[in-house]
Design a binder for these strands. Structure first.
Lengths: 337, 337
DNA sequence: GCAGCATTTGCACGCGCTTGCAAGAGCGAG
DNA sequence: CTCGCTCTTGCAAGCGCGTGCAAATGCTGC
């Protein structure tokens, strides 16, 4: 029970009968070590249970291998899937994910970024909220890469990855109209994030282009409960909609459940529904929801690949903005197909 | 755009006209600094955008502030909730979460723990899988605290937090019998983790005690799809069950959907269902599932508090095992209430 | 004014590692 | 045998910070 704490490279070196540099080089890919030395070092390291101290290594290399994931509610279906893909991709790229939870209070994202700076993270990926310009600039100045996912913003420096929310919403209109719907509605939350608003605007614009009016209602956050409330509001109106596009699958689930169990409306016969995100529940038999699938894997892959590139230093002036296409997952909540 | 990278304590010291130690002490809680010095340091730090380098600090203090969360599938409802609570609690405790994804391959957890060692994490919390004894011992010897959640194991050293799965399953039997059910069934996955098996055994034992037999079926992983398959298997039998306890809410959702939409069985009139975990979907109108709620918040709180205690060094010999009670969330999937 | 004390400050060393540099080792060609 | 070359190796100088120790400072009581 030798409570010797962590074993250092020095000790490995002594046991292997080499210098400490040799040990260091053995664990540095691409360094110059003879096969024999490497073998002896590895053996000693194995016996002693040596593990490189990444804290010290990061100090010298000025590269910690840490990437911060800044996200508000991890327990949301779509967000947790994105989180999973990101951590997997990061691990494949030899990075390690540091998870920072933000709430909706002001400065929450800023605090997260300060944390990223303190731990000398190589990069930060922001999934929720927007950082203050000044703190974002500070990160960039320190050589940190920044990725904003689904947060439309125009400051240069960070990589911005977005969806064609606006255009996708237009496709929803087309699908509804083809199903014979005329009284369109859009159910949104009050969160007012760029993606949510783009979906709303795209939907309304596409409907207008066909001469159709849209009943728009906003309430609460983008969750199941808000969907129920929205259903109660919209389905008690005199002019009841025959198609509703929910800004989010979670909203759609709440909406559908309220429509069915409280208003005894059958879907899709009396009401067509579509959502956004293609969360797992959308494919469950109870919902069988037509929705737009975010290309989560590609988004994660793109983000990680970009920040794994050697920091060319050429960053800063370019305005990197990517836009992905949301694929329509056609299911039974819209008539005909 | 002075691309000066990160600003060091030295620079803050010069600007504030004090020594570097003064800067260091200003950012060390409980250190001896005069109010005036602190003020000048803080001001200079603010202007220059100074942030303590936690890598270097961790090197000296032999305490990185990092806690590793080792988990297999983050995108699962119950796991993502636990993850959220843990990260929140960790942040409140001034720690930071490092997220490591494991797959189901062998040695996956071991690799994660090696990563934890390399980053000199203060502790690791394991939510999925079990580490090899030797590597776990290595962690402990290095002064790392270990927490195992819902992974019954008997090696001393780690804190083990479990649920009264066995006993809870007994309560499910009681509930079913009270509802007039006689033909009980248990739907399980093939994963065979301790918690899942405890639920199965507890259910079977409690039923036997009442002279009732249980139809047990296992299939796939603990997901929605497996629940559907299990329903197809169990509901096509000659002797159809009138009550089924699913080892997991996800299984229950799949089971219920298959029962309703493929077999046109009405719940709870013809079939009573109960689940485990109390995921968000269990409370959705389409399911309204009676289930057992894991005290996630308390579990997270307990875990974080324990590992925040000063490492008394007395750890090691004690066998710390905690068992929490799963609260029955009564809903409409069982008759009467 | 000075001893006695508590508080604050600076110096210098070390945490565990990487890496440039120069010396050493091996070796084929002349 | 020696020169010149390549491949390894060890040395030592840091990376940015915390902290023990001793010197300096401020203050009280006589």
């Amino acid at each position: 029970m030798g409570s010797k704490a962590y074993v250092r490279a020095q000790e490995v070196a002594e046991r292997a009968g080499v210098s400490r540099s040799a040990v260091s080089r053995t664990f540095t890919p691409g360094a110059s070590v003879s096969a024999e030395t490497r073998r002896r070092v590895m053996e000693a390291a194995e016996v002693l249970g040596y593990h490189v101290n990444e804290l010290a290594r990061g100090l010298m290399r000025r590269e910690s291998g840490i990437v911060c994931l800044i996200v508000s509610d991890v327990a949301t279906p779509h967000r947790s899937v994105l989180l999973r893909e990101l951590t997997l991709q990061l691990q494949n790229a030899g990075k390690v994910a540091m998870l920072i939870n933000t709430d909706l209070t002001n400065g929450s994202v800023d605090r997260a970024l300060r944390q990223a700076i303190r731990y000398r993270a190589d990069a930060s990926i922001i999934l929720s909220g927007l950082p203050d310009k000044s703190i974002a600039q500070l990160c960039l100045r320190c050589g940190q890469r920044l990725v904003l996912i689904n947060r439309d913003d125009d400051q240069p420096g960070p990589l911005k990855i977005n969806l064609d929310d606006y255009e996708a919403a237009g496709r929803a209109v087309t699908a509804f109209v083809r199903a014979g719907c005329r009284k369109l509605a859009f159910a949104n939350s009050e969160a007012g994030t760029p993606s949510l608003m783009a979906r709303e605007h795209g939907f309304v614009a596409a409907a207008r282009a066909l001469g159709l009016d849209v009943m728009v209602e906003r309430h609460g956050w983008t969750g199941y409960a808000a969907g129920q409330v929205l259903a109660q509001r919209m389905l008690t109106r005199a002019e009841r909609p025959d198609a509703v596009f929910c800004a989010t699958d979670l909203l759609a689930c709440g909406f559908m459940d309220a429509a069915r169990h409280q208003f005894f409306i059958s879907i899709p016969q009396q009401l067509c529904v579509a959502g956004f995100d293609d969360i797992e529940q959308a494919s469950w038999l109870s919902y069988d929801l037509t929705t737009f699938a975010q290309p989560v894997k590609e988004v994660a892959k793109t983000a990680v690949e970009w920040l794994s590139e050697t920091p060319t230093d050429s960053a800063g002036s370019e305005n990197l903005s990517l836009r992905f296409k949301a694929e329509l997952a056609w299911r039974g909540s819209i008539r005909g197909g």
